[in-house]
Write a protein that binds this DNA or RNA. Structure first.
Lengths: 111, 111
DNA sequence: CAAATACATGATAATATGTTCATATGATGA
DNA sequence: TCATCATATGAACATATTATCATGTATTTG
């Protein structure tokens, strides 16, 4: 019986071929976004669907300003999207890569 | 014809279930390591096999002290391994997750 | 064993980052 | 329109991070 792989090794090898220095810097910038506990908690909080700022603050037990500042960073780097709903701003994960990247990280630290 | 997926979506969903706050902080710490251009260049440099410090310095065109400092961080976080070979220290990627994580990141920024 | 090579490390300084506080903006309802 | 709720944002401060410089340690070789 085959053990299911999370990823396709051949495709991984293909993706990491010929990465330019600029792309490596862009990658560093991307990972930097994930490299803060507040931001990664916000992202994880959005795993079960879109939420407004107040809800996120309650979930993280953090003050609104700190959360808003980090949400701005997440929005600028296009990891989350935002839309207005009346007085509230509703945030959501921008795409599924966020889940994948975090899952890869979790697999690594579980060893 | 099926388009091959880099990852197994079901397994992703399973991995990201029930992540504790502590684990999220550990994840942030991990991603922080990837979130520096010097470190990610070192990691990428090691993709094609083990290298000593001098070789890494030449590849990155950076001075030895800066590289050594970052190598220490990479070693402490167990992303690279080190062994002595005569006067030289030979560094290598500690496991394949590094490649996967970087590939996931590259897929994301390519959009 | 002295000198040279390869690397590590501590201190310092410059810069970046994240939180807090105060305040501004935007939307809604009385 | 004014008060209120929801969020954004600028300034300031504290802390963290990174590269450089100087120097220390380990290994080999003459």
């Amino acid at each position: 019986m085959e053990i299911p792989k999370v990823y396709d090794e051949e495709k991984i090898e293909h993706i990491i071929k010929n990465v330019t220095e600029t792309e490596l810097c862009d990658l560093a910038e991307l990972f930097k976004i994930f490299g803060d506990s507040t931001r990664i908690k916000i992202l994880y909080d959005l795993f079960d669907g879109e939420k407004n700022v107040t809800e996120i603050c309650e979930d993280l037990e953090m003050n609104q300003s700190a959360v808003s500042h980090q949400l701005k960073i997440l929005r600028t780097s296009r990891l989350v999207s935002a839309r207005r709903a009346g007085k509230a701003m509703v945030y959501a994960l921008a795409d599924d890569h966020v889940k994948t990247i975090i899952a890869m990280g979790k697999e690594h630290i579980e060893e």
